[in-house]
């Protein structure tokens, strides 16, 4: 569904990605782990189009998308829940969700009715968002904002979801909750690329994982293998 081959990208003169390759098959959860500054978020941002790659190829559902505008890539079926949540603070929870489905809703009127089913699904997954649907999203707690960011990504009915650092800055109890949701989404057949600091949790939920170091994939494999890999244990799963 998503195939990244030999990707090079960076900010201005500094290259961050130096030949990253990875594959996310349909209906699988793939984890991308590694230390700070390895290029995980840059990989995500390059896939969704915020950063233009200098070299390499990104294939989404059979079509090359590298170098396209982010809004265009989103229309092709990619939803990116970015690092730091990035909810639209002044807008209500429900407006945030509706905008998640922007590409397939009418622009002026009747959009609410057309999105009703999807709203219902997201509210079932995150009852707390339903309770607060009229609240300005900037006033939600960090955990609620994370749930909103995930819900907003799902509203697009995407082919592939990119989820960047969902546990960042959250209390452990809330992180458990977020990973429960990811597990439920996995059961429902989502195609997900997950970037996560907490390698342990990411490996617990993933079908396949890549370990990134200095802009390249250093190790890859199914989680059961990686959990036994001495290098991975030493670097990320220690204690």
């Amino acid at each position: 569904m998503l195939v990244v081959t030999d990707l090079y990208a960076g900010y201005g003169m500094s290259e961050v990605l130096m030949g990253t390759s990875l594959t996310v098959k349909k209906g699988t959860v793939v984890a991308l782990i590694g230390p700070n500054g390895a290029g995980k978020t840059t990989t995500m941002r390059t896939i969704s189009g915020s950063i233009k790659p200098t070299r390499g190829e990104i294939i989404l559902d059979g079509a090359p998308v590298q170098g396209l505008e982010p809004s265009y890539i989103a229309r092709l079926g990619l939803a990116h829940a970015p690092e730091g949540r990035k909810v639209f603070g002044p807008l209500s929870v429900e407006d945030n969700l509706l905008l998640g489905a922007f590409t397939r809703l009418p622009r002026f009127f009747g959009f609410h009715a057309k999105a009703a089913d999807d709203l219902e699904k997201v509210y079932n997954l995150f009852p707390r968002l339903k309770e607060r649907y009229r609240q300005a999203s900037g006033t939600l707690s960090g955990g609620e904002q994370q749930m909103l960011a995930i819900g907003r990504a799902l509203m697009a009915r995407p082919k592939v979801v990119l989820l960047d650092e969902p546990s960042m800055g959250l209390a452990p109890v809330i992180v458990d909750e977020v990973f429960d949701i990811i597990r439920r989404l996995k059961e429902s057949g989502i195609t997900l690329l997950l970037v996560e600091q907490s390698a342990k949790r990411a490996l617990e939920v993933a079908d396949y994982a890549y370990v990134m170091e200095r802009g390249r994939i250093a190790v890859e494999g199914v989680p059961q293998e990686l959990q036994k890999n001495e290098r991975v244990i030493a670097a990320y799963l220690g204690n």
Binding site: L98, L105, R107
Partner: peptide, 24 residues
């Protein structure tokens, strides 16, 4: 209107709006 909300979304966070398929 949804287009108006998209307008507000671009004001709030241009990059995130682009990720929703809204052309800034």
């Amino acid at each position: 209107t949804l287009l108006g909300k998209a307008f507000e979304a671009v004001s709030a966070d241009r990059d995130a709006a682009e990720l929703m398929g809204i052309s800034a």
